[in-house]
């Protein structure tokens, strides 16, 4: 099995890579920094915030593909009151979390780099169900990915026999989460990225994968009580940031 993953050097992406390499898959990683472990992995340095870098990817991938599994896991976060966020940060969040996976999907499709029978998985966030005050730009970008995946799902299956999915993990014990947790947070209640990676890889059919019990509980709360869920997120995150 051939796999392409963005953001495979760290966090959830690295956990997905560990599972896949153990299962004998050939993995190509797109990231800004090289993976810490598995020096033998095929690594394509790329700054996803640069559209030109992105546009150059398909040519570099021509020999490697088509891929049976593509995971768009690269993402950044920045928290703080929206009006105080530097404009450069807003641009970066938009470019990396939202524009890059959409552009990369178009490039891969145009170059036939996703195999028939393959899977295309976007990584969004459980904030889709709850809102995320204190990270409004992040929340917007992730919701864009959910709608993008939902939109592609039927036509990709009908026209290309590709399964499109989106996963909405909750807080995990990754460097990303630790950096953006509110001050005083113990990290309790955070899921182990290996566990989440396994749940995502196992779920081969679902349109929206809600991996792990914590994010399932958050998603259910958000679905039943959307206003209260956003209010609870505000208390837990935003009010500790200001």
């Amino acid at each position: 099995m051939r796999v392409l993953i963005t953001g495979g050097s760290d966090g959830l992406g690295a956990a997905v890579v560990r599972h896949l390499t153990q299962a004998g898959a050939q993995v190509w990683i797109i990231d800004k920094t090289a993976p810490q472990t598995h020096q033998s992995l095929r690594f394509l340095p790329c700054d996803l915030a640069q559209p030109d870098d992105l546009a150059g990817l398909p040519a570099r991938l021509q020999q490697a593909g088509p891929f049976d599994l593509v995971v768009m896991s690269a993402g950044i976060n920045a928290v703080g009151p929206f009006e105080a966020m530097p404009l450069a940060t807003i641009r970066n969040l938009h470019a990396i979390n939202c524009a890059a996976p959409i552009l990369l999907a178009q490039h891969l499709l145009a170059q036939d780099l996703i195999a028939a029978g393959g899977r295309l998985v976007f990584i969004a966030s459980v904030s889709h169900f709850t809102g995320y005050p204190g990270a409004s730009v992040y929340a917007g970008g992730k919701d864009a990915l959910v709608a993008f995946a939902r939109s592609l799902r039927r036509p990709f299956w009908a026209d290309h026999r590709i399964t499109v999915q989106v996963a909405t993990p909750g807080p995990m014990r990754t460097a990303h989460a630790a950096r953006h947790a509110p001050p005083g947070s113990t990290g309790r209640g955070r899921a182990c990225p290996d566990h989440i990676a396994r749940a995502i890889l196992r779920s081969k059919r679902r349109a929206v994968i809600v991996p792990g019990v914590a994010s399932q509980a958050m998603a259910l709360f958000g679905r039943l009580f959307p206003v209260q869920a956003t209010q609870a997120m505000r208390k837990m995150l935003y009010e500790r940031l200001v």
Binding site: G131, P133, G134, A135, S136, G141, T230, R234, Y238
Partner: peptide, 9 residues
């Protein structure tokens, strides 16, 4: 999604 979170902020 942006509007939902910003409304709360």
């Amino acid at each position: 999604g942006f509007g939902r979170s910003l409304r709360s902020e």
